[in-house]
Nucleic acid binder design. Structure first.
Lengths: 198, 198, 198, 198
DNA sequence: AATGAATGAGCCTTCATTCAT
DNA sequence: TATGAATGAAGGCTCATTCAT
C-alpha cells in the first residue's frame, strides 16, 4: 500500500461522497438532504463522511467549487468554430437527461439561492461568474479577431453577460417546465443567439 | 360581529402570516425558516398559525399561489404603449430594493427548485407559466395589431418564452451578482429586448 | 391563569430540571450525564428542557450559581455563638446522608475540576470563593469583637482560607473514604478547628 | 530481539500512552479526552493503543494505580528531619508549575469524583489512602521517637488524616483559585501545620 | 380566538472500538 | 508491530405539530 494508493483511496472516497451528496441535494435540496441519506447513497456509514469533510457545509462548498472548475474547463475547450445554437441545445439536452457531468439546473437554482444567505458561497459564486464571463468575453474577442473583426472589450463583456442570462434563464425554464417543446426552444435560440454571440 | 367581519378577520390573519412567512423564507429559505420565526414576525403564537394553515407546506403553497396571481395581474395591466426596456430596468430596481410587492428573486429560485421535487408545486408553476406566457403573447399580438402589424400566434409564444428566459436569467444574475453594474445591465437589455419584443 | 401562575410554573419547571440535573451529575458526572437522562429523571421530554435552559452548559452554570447562593445564605445565618466543631460534623453528616439542600461533595469536586477548563466556570467559582471567604472573615472579626477581642483583617482572611481548605479537604476525604470513622473525624476537628477559628 | 527487549518495548509503549493520557485527562477531563487525542499526543495510531490497553477505562485505572504507587514511594523517601511547611509549599509550587512527576490537582479531583461511581476505583483509592495514611503515621511515630518523644498510634493516625485533609483541601483551593497569593498560603500553613505535624 | 407548554422524531456530529492490511 | 479506515451507537439540540387552557 504505497502513498499513491492512499491518495487514490482518499480521492475516490471524497468523490463517492460528493456524487452521493449531489444526488441528494438535487433530490431533496441542501437542507432537506440529511447526512444519513448521503451516507446511504454513498454506501458508507454517516460517521465516515467526517473523515473526508469537516461538515455538511464543507460538502456544499466542495460541490460548488467542483462545478465552477468544470464550467471553466468547458469554456477553455471552446473552439472558434463552435455552433453555439447547437451547443446550447445540447446543454439543455444534457440537463434533461440528468447527465452527471453537467451542472444540474436545480442545483444551480439552489446554490444561487444559498448565495443570498451565506457570504462565503456568495463570494465564491460572484467571483466565479466574473471569471467565466471574462473567459468567455476573451473567447468572443479572439474568435472575432480570427475573422478579421475587432470587438470592443466592453461590448464583449456585455455579450458574455447576456449569454449568462440566457443560459440561466433557460435553466429556470427547464426546471419549471421540463416538458417544454424542443421546437419552441430551438426557435427562441434562433431568435436570440445571433444578437448575443453574432 | 357579523359574518363579514369574521371573514375579514380570518383573511387579515392569513395575510399577516403569509407576509411574515415570505419575509422568513426570503431571509432563511423554506427549510431553514422555522414556524417559530414566522410566528414571531407575524406577532402571534406559533400554535395560532395552525388555525389558518394546515402545515408549513400549506403556507409555502399559498405563497406560491399568491405570487402567481400577482404576476397575472401585472400582465393584465400592461398598456400597449409600455416602454419595455424601462419596465424591465424598473423591475430589476425593485428586486434590488427588496420591494415587498414584487416577486423576490431569491424566492423565485427557491420556488423553482422546489418544483423539481413536489409534483403539486411543479404542476402549479408549469400551468401558471403557460398561462402568463399566453397572456403576454396575446398582449404582443394585440399591440402589434394596434400598430397595423400582424404577428403569428406561434411567433408571439416564442417571443413570450424568450422574455421569460430573459427575466428569469436576470433574476439569477441579480441574486448571484447583486453589485452588477447598471451600465452593463442597460446595455444588455438594449441589445436583447428589441429582438424579443420588437 | 394569571402572570404569577405562569412565573410559578416556569420556576417550578426550572427547579425540576435543576434537581434532576444535580442528581444525574452526581451519579454520572457532567459529561456522562445525558440530556436524555436528565429529562427522564425530570419526567419530561428532552426537548422541553431547552425551553428553560439554553444548553447543557447553562444548566451546569445554573447549578453552580444556586450552590453559591445557598452557601452565602448559610454563612449569613451564622450565629456568634455557633459551635463550629459540631457544625462541621453536622455538615459531614449531611454529606453522607445525601441531603439535597447541601452541596454534594462529589459535585464539589467535579465543579472544581471543570473550573480548570472552562473560564466562565472558573471565574464564577473564583469570585464566589473570594466572596464567601470575605463573608466568613467578617463574621470572624465581628464575633471576636463581641468578645472584646480585636482581630486583624488579614489574619481573619487567613483563618477563613484555612477553613475553606479544611472543609474542602474533608469533602475529598468523604468521597474517597465514605466509611471514615466518626471518631477519627471528631478527633481531627478537635485538633484543627481551635487554631482556625479560635 | 530477545525477550527482555520485547518487554522493554511493551513497557515503553505503555508508558508513552499513559503519559499522553495523563496530559489529555488533565487538559480535557476523563470523558472529554478522546482516544484520538491521546493517540496524537502519544504519537501513535489510535488502534495501536488497544494492543496495550483493553479500553479507555483500563487506561484510567492504570493512571490511578501509577499515581498511588508514586505517592507511596514519596512517603517512603521521607527523611526524619524534613521541613514540612517547606515541603508543602514546594508541593503547591509543583502543582502550579504543572510538574509532570507530581500528582496533578485537577486529576486528583477527577479521580476522586470517579470513585463515587466506580466501585473498583473507589476500592483502590480507599485502600491506597489507608495505606499511605498508615505509612505516614508510622513515619510520624518514628520521627518523634528519634527525638525521644512517644506518640500514641491513634494520635498519629489522626494527624496523618489531618494532613491528608489539609493537602487535598489545598489542591481544591489551587484549582479553584490558581492566583491565590503565596503570602496567604504561607501564613495558613504556618498556622495549621504545627498542630498537625508538630 | 389565542396561547405557549409539551412532545417526539430527526438532524448533525463525535467517538470508542474493531479489523483488514 | 502498526496503521487508519470503517462502523454504530449515542449525544446535544431543533422544530413542526398538538392540545389543554
Amino acid at each position: 500500500m504505497n502513498a499513491d494508493a492512499v491518495i487514490d483511496r482518499a480521492t475516490a472516497q471524497r468523490d463517492r461522497i460528493l456524487c452521493a451528496a449531489r444526488r441528494c441535494f438535487i433530490d431533496h435540496g441542501f437542507h432537506a438532504a440529511s447526512m444519513a441519506s448521503i451516507a446511504e447513497v454513498a454506501d458508507m456509514s454517516a460517521g465516515l463522511i467526517y473523515r473526508y469533510f469537516d461538515s455538511k457545509n464543507a460538502i456544499i462548498l466542495a460541490i460548488i467549487e467542483r462545478q465552477l472548475a468544470d464550467k471553466r474547463a468547458d469554456i477553455a475547450e471552446l473552439q472558434p468554430g463552435t455552433d453555439f445554437a447547437q451547443g446550447v441545445r445540447d446543454l439543455v439536452a444534457r440537463w434533461r437527461s440528468g447527465d452527471v457531468r453537467t451542472m444540474n439546473p436545480t442545483l444551480l437554482l439552489e446554490m444561487s439561492a444559498l448565495a443570498s444567505r451565506d457570504p462565503q458561497i456568495a463570494a465564491a459564486l460572484c467571483e466565479a461568474d466574473r471569471v467565466t464571463r471574462s473567459d468567455f468575453a476573451t473567447w468572443l474577442v479572439q474568435r472575432a479577431a480570427s475573422s478579421g473583426v475587432k470587438i470592443d472589450a466592453d461590448a464583449a463583456q456585455t455579450r458574455a453577460f447576456a449569454l449568462q442570462c440566457l443560459i440561466e434563464g433557460l435553466a429556470v425554464r427547464i426546471v419549471r417546465e421540463p416538458g417544454m417543446s424542443d421546437h419552441m426552444l430551438a426557435d427562441m435560440l434562433a431568435m436570440n443567439l445571433p444578437v448575443v454571440i453574432g
